[in-house]
Design a protein around this nucleic acid. Structure first.
Lengths: 199, 199
DNA sequence: AGACCGATTGACTGGTCAGTCAACCAGCGG
DNA sequence: CCGCTGGTTGACTGACCAGTCAATCGGTCT
């Protein structure tokens, strides 16, 4: 058998961890579960990672940096600020569509677990909120968004709404479907920008 | 020393558990921590509860049933549907103001931990979403709210925004103050009902 | 060949902690 | 005074599992 380059085994472990964390949750997975799922010996996990936490760490940082990049890119791209927010919503929802297990792990085990694990990443998480807030602030300056709502507040509400929707799909509170995902993108922006009251 | 009635010791344990869970998180608290905090012997916790989980259980059910009652009461009270939503937001935010530690535990350890512990209570959690959705649906029927947003969607967005705000306060992403709480109630309804776009 | 070295293996250890249980204590009724 | 009952105590046990480490494997270079 040809020897797989080291990086592949590492990747293999990360991918397996996503599946197992998604299935059982971080606390309930033993390191041996990850190793088994990856088809790799127990000890190898510790060859590539210092601890079980570091595996989750890596998964989170990998993806969250993409999210932050996407938000800042959406802002940099210009256009109506409403569309910039739409781009953010679309990115997050498409991330879920593309890799629901990974998003489940990130949201459930990190983002919404600010107590235990998310504490470590509070800075990065906050950065995402602030980047969204910046879009809002710019939109207010441009007169495209009302000025009497503090940007950080709008940002938290917007992001919170998105995350709640994802949670709904993750835990089957609400059925998930491709059409539902696309509809959600629109509804999110409609609700946050136009509001529920009839015009 | 006068012998405290049994119910008081039970209460003492529950209250201590709130403090310890809030401080360390559910997973990181040992049963002995709860006993110590309550000034009670280790074994007594098991006299009143079957397990550590049952303690958290009890705390959640106690408070969540109040929340559901408040939502359904807000609906039953009549008046503009916008005000009914405002009443829901006010109840949740005031719950936090009144007992931040308990709300922290409920949100962090149950509501946002649908994986591990929240799984057990998915039904009750869903019930809250649905009660809010009913307010929205009624509002749409009455022509007070736009009809092109599915009620359950609006409900998730609304509740998600609230919970995200609480999380912000809980983890000091955003400073908390009495004025901020009251402002948040208004902004929440403003944002969700009127939207961010200028009228 | 054979020395070298990083990847890989999995048995083992040490510490942690949930839950058990036998003993103890205080009031009360007979 | 004595035995009963139910609250209360805390030492102990058994299971579990993260992380260690010595041994092995296999490719590469000399």
């Amino acid at each position: 058998m040809a020897k797989a380059p080291p990086a592949e085994k590492r990747r293999q472990i990360l991918d397996a961890a996503v599946r197992v964390f998604a299935r059982q949750g971080f606390h309930a997975t033993r390191v041996s579960d990850i190793a088994d799922e990856a088809g790799v010996a127990y000890g190898l996990v510790y060859h590539y990672f210092d601890s079980k936490e570091e595996v989750l760490n890596e998964l989170f940082v990998e993806r969250w940096s993409l999210l932050i990049a996407a938000i800042e890119e959406a802002d940099r791209a210009g256009g109506p600020h409403r569309d910039r927010l739409a781009a953010v919503a679309a990115f997050i929802i498409d991330s879920y569509r593309h890799d629901p297990e990974l998003m489940k792990v990130i949201i459930v085990e990190v983002t919404r677990a600010a107590n235990s694990f998310g504490q470590t990443h509070l800075t990065e998480i906050r950065r995402a909120y602030e980047s969204i807030a910046k879009i809002v602030a710019d939109g207010q300056e441009a007169g495209e968004l009302r000025g009497d709502v503090p940007p950080i507040f709008a940002s938290m509400a917007f992001y919170g709404a998105i995350e709640q929707l994802l949670s709904g799909w993750i835990f089957d509170v609400v059925p998930s479907s491709d059409a539902g995902f696309d509809q959600a993108k629109d509804l999110l922006v409609t609700t946050i920008c136009d509001g529920l009251a009839p015009r």
